[in-house]
Amino acid sequence: MLEIKDLRTRVGGREVLGGLNLTVNKGEVHAIMGPNGSGKSTLAYTLAGRPGYDVTGGTVTYRGNDLLALAPEERAQEGVFLGFQYPVEIPGVNNVYLLKAALNAARKHRGLPEVDAFEFLTLVREKMKVMQMDEAFLSRGVNEGFSGGEKKRNEILQMLVLEPSLALLDETDSGLDIDALKVVANGVNTLRSPERSIVLVTHYQRLLDYIKPDYVHVLARGRIIKSGGPDLARELEARGYDWVIAEAA
C-alpha cells in the first residue's frame, strides 16, 4: 500500500524528516509515536501534500505509484485521507456540502457518476449514527463552533463517508474525553478491512487500547528509530522515550 524510503522533508528551512523509512501493507494498522517535535505531524502533512512541507529527498510509493508527484487533491481522490489534529473551521461552507463535494470529486476521479441525493443522505445518516452525531451538524458550517471532540468526530465521519484506502490520523485522540475516544475509535475500527491501511499518529497508549495496531513505531529526530508490536506502546507508556532514543544513539 505505502512504501516510504529515505524521506527527507524541510519545513521553514529546517529539516524535520531526515531519512524516514516505513512500509505499510494492505489491511495493516501502524501507530507512530514519539516525543514532541519528532516529526510525526510533518510525516502526515508530507504524505497529504501540504504546501510548505518541501520534500528534499527520498521516495513515497502509494499503490505502486509516486505519491509525491500528485497534487494534494489528487492524493485525496486516490484514496489518501488526512485526519487533522486541528481541523479548521470554515464558516459559510456547510458540512453536508463539503461531504457531498468530496465524495463526488472522488467518484468523478474514478469515472463514476455523481452520487444520488437520496443515496447520499442515507449513507451520511448511517455514518452519523456510528459517530453518535446529531443530524443538525450537517447544516452547520464546517467545524464552525464545534468543540474539540466534535471536530474529531467530524473528521472520522468524513473518513467513513469517503472510505479511503489509506487513512493518516494525526493525533485523533487529542482533546477527547474517554467516552468520545471510544466513539472515535469505534469509527476508525469500522473502517478497518483487508483492503485498507491506517497510520495513527499518537502520543498516548490509551488510543491503542481501542484501536489495536499491528505495528508500533517510534519516531525521533525525523527518523523511525524503533519498531515493534503493540507491546512497544505499553512499554513507552511505562518508561517514556528516553531509553529508546538512547538505545538508537
Partner: peptide, 14 residues
Amino acid sequence: ADMLFYLLSRGIPP
C-alpha cells in the same frame, strides 16, 4: 491557506 488545504485534502479541486 489552512482552509484551502483542508478542502484540497478532501479531494476538492483547487
